[in-house]
Design a protein around this nucleic acid. Structure first.
Lengths: 202, 202
DNA sequence: ATTTCTATCTAACGATTGTTATAAAAGTTT
DNA sequence: AAACTTTTATAACAATCGTTAGATAGAAAT
């Protein structure tokens, strides 16, 4: 086998990455149906046909972006949790919320693209994405069970409902928080405060 | 002026209503970009061109549907709140959550269509829809202020954050709750339990 | 210098899109 | 029965869609 030239392999990957970055941004702004390959190509200073050198087609590109969307959020959260492996269960939940929210708003458009486009992407893509989603949700289920087993969560709170409540309030921030809003970490703390201790006064 | 014949006016309205109903369902399932006028027409046993007798075009139809989406949720919630005008502030919040969730999941596809399609609809439609959205959010702001002024909400909870947390967890149910899931009223109670008294144990 | 490989462009394909003008029904009024 | 109104169908339009095959330019390898 020939010695694999690293320089060129990098170049190829750089183009792939640029295409995915620009496409992700467009997906967030315009949605799946309204984002054409020509839109994506123009954002990359390319022509639509050239994208086929890097991807098998629109759906393959979109699937890879959306898949990387969950993957990025999950790995960020997982890394933060490993770094805080000894922290109390509730504190680990707060950290997970901070990283989830920060990844969504600061890091990249992949996570946002996933959340925004998942519902309207072709059914076969959606089916495959569900696996990655389920894995990430299982991470949260584990976190909450951990807290409950440590006695940190009230017995009459359904963990399934709690999981979706927390994920829901976080993901919904994409619908209202502008880039100039409260920073994600502070926002996560406020959500944590509400979800864990409750808003009421008694 | 001629006596307006009620029979025919009704017939015209019935067709309009049917078109909007079917279109709303398709919008929920497929999203704005992937729902064509021919899709909508087929669902109505009509041809695409015929839709132009009832609506000025795709965007006008979609805007009317999405606008009615917020309007329905708001008027349902408002009616329920008027019927419970004397109830304690926190109880009124619980009721509002129940009706919001029930309208989204049981009543019709208009509210779901609004939530699902808002982000990806053309910008000028989105701009006009924002007014109706803001009015509905103001209703929630009022509800929460009412509860805070009555001493029912902790001082260190930001009402703006709380509002979006509650709306977010409710609207996100569209992403995970199937038609066979927990009924909306019970789900609203669980959310209320979490958001108001908190999930933690201390 | 020639060949080979990589990355992009060109130009077109058939299908589908929103939209329009016009014809044809179907129903109501006179 | 004739005239008129309301509703739908027909058929086409320009534009755009995802996709493909083949040409082209530039860099790397020989």
């Amino acid at each position: 086998m020939p010695a694999t030239p690293r320089r060129e392999e990098k170049l190829r990957d750089v183009s792939r990455r640029m295409i995915m970055d620009r496409a992700a941004r467009l997906l967030v702004k315009q949605g799946y149906g309204a984002t054409s390959l020509r839109d994506i190509a123009r954002a990359c200073d390319m022509k639509a046909g050239s994208l086929y050198y890097h991807f098998d087609g629109k759906d393959a590109l979109v699937e890879e972006i959306l898949n990387e969307g969950v993957a990025r959020v999950e790995s960020s959260v997982r890394a933060a949790l490993e770094a805080a492996a000894e922290a109390p269960a509730l504190e680990r939940i707060r950290i997970a919320m901070q990283v989830h929210l920060a990844t969504l708003h600061d890091r990249s458009d992949y996570g946002s693209a996933h959340i925004r486009c998942f519902a309207h992407v072709p059914a076969d893509i959606r089916r495959r994405l569900r696996e990655a989603r389920a894995r990430y949700e299982a991470l949260w289920t584990g976190l909450l069970e951990e807290a409950r087993d440590a006695g940190g969560i009230a017995a009459d709170v359904d963990l399934h409902t709690l999981k979706f409540a927390v994920i829901g309030m976080m993901n919904w921030t994409l619908e209202w928080r502008g880039p100039a809003g409260v920073n994600p970490e502070e926002l996560a703390d406020r959500f944590f405060r509400i979800a864990m201790r409750g808003a009421s006064n008694d």
